[in-house]
């Protein structure tokens, strides 16, 4: 336990102190954008991971990221909400929608669930194109930067527009949200509902037969998962200050799933590591120019052949567990 605490402290130190210091020292400001994206995508993958935890393959996170983004964008531009208010609203909206969609589709399992969530991603994109409120293919642009957030007159977060360096601000915001999400995730996994979820993953009928309310747990987990997706989408919109129907497409949904796989499905921090490795790896491979995708996918295939249970399964073997 002590070792874990040291590890967490080191991680927090690295994320909130060392990275900004290192970037300021080297002048690689562009890395902020990459790292912010990693943090946000990691939030989305945390949700996907949670659905994996109940034994469902979720390839629909892109749909909720897109919905969350649109909710935030529409509320800010049309209803004049502040960004900070739209953040939880976007998450809640996605959670609400996911309950409606989840009630029928969570009865599906395995490949069936995977396929319908993938279809959901595509349909969300089409809906964003067709609905009047989303402004179609033109998207919603020139969304204001997040304003200041103050509680009882004390300004907690200054206005992003007046910040000397909004990139740093966004990075800290995303990193803080990511850490928060993973704390929540860790808490869920190590709670009674978390253990019940694990029983769902192993055998749903058996779990139901000993009195676990499987239907309720499934929908609840899926709603939390979609909440994460919406949250990530909303922050993305704030950063890029625009959203289009193609902002989150099928490829993004598939990527969310891949991040989880690469990190390892058996570990809470798996999706975070997977996101970091894949996203950063993709960026680094841009030196390969037109062979970027070829090298990337070959590495991915090679990794599956060598480590089919995810990167973190490396530590398993060291620990001698199996």
């Amino acid at each position: 336990m002590n070792k874990n605490l040291v590890g967490i402290a080191a991680f927090l130190l690295a994320v909130f102190v060392l990275v900004p210091v290192a970037i300021a020292a080297t002048g690689r400001w562009d890395l902020y954008y990459t790292l912010t994206s990693v943090a946000l995508l990691a939030i989305g993958s945390a949700g996907v991971w949670l659905t994996f935890y109940i034994g469902r393959i979720n390839i629909g996170q892109g749909a909720y990221a897109l919905m969350g983004g649109y909710v935030s964008a529409v509320l800010m531009t049309k209803a004049g909400f502040s960004f900070w208010a739209t953040l939880p609203l976007a998450g809640l909206f996605c959670a609400g929608i996911s309950v409606l969609i989840g009630l029928p589709i969570l009865r599906l399992r395995g490949v069936y669930f995977a396929m319908i969530t993938l279809v959901l991603t595509e349909v969300t994109r089409l809906a964003a194109l067709a609905l009047p409120v989303t402004n179609g293919a033109k998207g919603i642009t020139s969304i204001p930067l997040p304003g200041s957030l103050s509680v009882f007159g004390i300004t907690l977060i200054p206005d992003f527009a007046t910040m000397a360096n909004p990139k740093l601000g966004f990075y800290l915001l995303a990193a803080a949200l990511m850490v928060l999400s993973y704390v929540v995730l860790w808490r869920i996994v190590n709670s009674r509902p978390g253990h019940l979820c694990r029983s769902l993953q192993q055998n749903e009928e058996l779990a139901a037969s000993i009195g676990v309310n499987t239907a309720y747990l499934r929908v609840l987990t899926y709603a939390i998962s979609s909440f994460f997706g919406g949250l990530a989408g909303a922050v993305f919109v704030a950063i890029s200050q625009s959203i289009y129907p193609s902002s989150f497409a099928v490829a993004d949904s598939v990527n969310f799933m891949l991040y989880c796989f690469v990190g390892g499905l058996g570990y809470v921090t798996g999706p975070m590591l997977g996101t970091f490795v894949l996203y950063f790896g993709w960026d680094l491979l841009s030196i390969a120019k037109q062979y970027q995708l070829l090298v990337y996918s070959s590495l991915m295939i090679a990794m599956m052949l060598v480590l089919p249970n995810g990167l973190l399964s490396l530590f398993d073997r060291k620990g001698g567990k199996k």
């Binding site: 393959i57 995977a114 598939v254 799933m257 891949l258 796989f261 690469v262 995708l293 070829l294 990337y296 996918s297 070959s298 991915m300 295939i301 599956m304």
Partner: peptide, 10 residues
């Protein structure tokens, strides 16, 4: 599925 997605990218 990861493998299949990797092959799709490839």
């Amino acid at each position: 599925m990861l493998l299949a997605a990797g092959i799709a990218f490839f």
